[in-house]
């Protein structure tokens, strides 16, 4: 059974980024959405890109975006610059499923705690997921796996379903379907609308959440 929690947070009382340094394990996306470092997290749904982008922005380190040509070629840095530091991005274009998984494994395993976004065209088996999870534990970074196919039983720490919502401002519903530590829940995130020039990654973390069933 999915446990639905309702959480509220104000725009002002978000945890400052400095707090992340004292608690290096968890990544804070605002409004109490916590992602553990050294773990992989699965994201599905049409809003998965934004979830991954916000997580990468909170991680504040080099970002590797690994995917097939069709996924890498559609990325638009002019759109991403509002949330990410584009100069820290590395794009890895794989030509097969094997290369995708190998590249993700190497990137997660590498020392330095990279943020790795893996654009998976289909789904992951338990074995593959477990290997990526072990690699992430070794490297200390964070792995975000964007699943385009159905999510199976996997070794990831959490699984999220993210959908954009029709609202006045850009808004998303983030549902944590699975959490190894039982941290499921449902969040309604609202952005601040179109970004102004010169804003950096930190600002977009200021998202207001509203109660939602």
């Amino acid at each position: 059974m999915r446990q639905v929690k309702m959480r509220q947070a104000e725009l002002q009382n978000l945890i400052p980024l400095g707090a992340i340094l004292h608690r290096p394990k968890a990544l804070d996306l605002g409004a109490g959405v916590q992602l553990r470092r050294g773990r992989t997290h699965e994201v599905t749904g049409a809003g998965a890109d934004m979830f991954a982008v916000l997580a990468a922005a909170a991680h504040e380190q080099s970002l590797l975006w690994i995917g097939l040509h069709r996924d890498i070629a559609t990325l638009n840095p002019v759109g991403l610059q509002a949330n990410l530091k584009v100069e820290q991005m590395i794009l890895v274009e794989a030509v097969s499923r094997g290369e995708l998984l190998w590249a993700a494994d190497q990137a997660l395993r590498a020392p330095g705690g990279f943020c790795v976004i893996l654009d998976m065209p289909d789904t992951l088996s338990l074995k593959e997921s477990r290997r990526l999870q072990l690699a992430a534990e070794q490297g200390g970074g964070i792995g975000l796996i964007l699943l385009r196919g159905p999510a199976n039983t996997t070794a990831a720490q959490t699984r999220w379903d993210c959908q954009p919502v029709c609202a006045e401002q850009p808004a998303w519903d983030w549902i944590c379907l699975k959490g190894k530590n039982g941290e499921t829940g449902r969040w309604h995130m609202t952005g601040k609308g179109p970004q102004k020039r010169g804003q950096n990654a930190k600002d977009t973390l200021h998202m207001a959440t509203a109660a939602s069933a």
Binding site: L64, M89, I90, L91, V92, E93, E99, A103, Q106, A110
Partner: peptide, 19 residues
């Protein structure tokens, strides 16, 4: 840079790119 080298040597350096 070490990671770029590792990935590039297997996938090809033209497949590891930046904007």
């Amino acid at each position: 840079l070490i990671l770029i080298e590792t990935l590039g040597n297997r996938l090809g350096f033209d497949h590891i790119r930046i904007f």
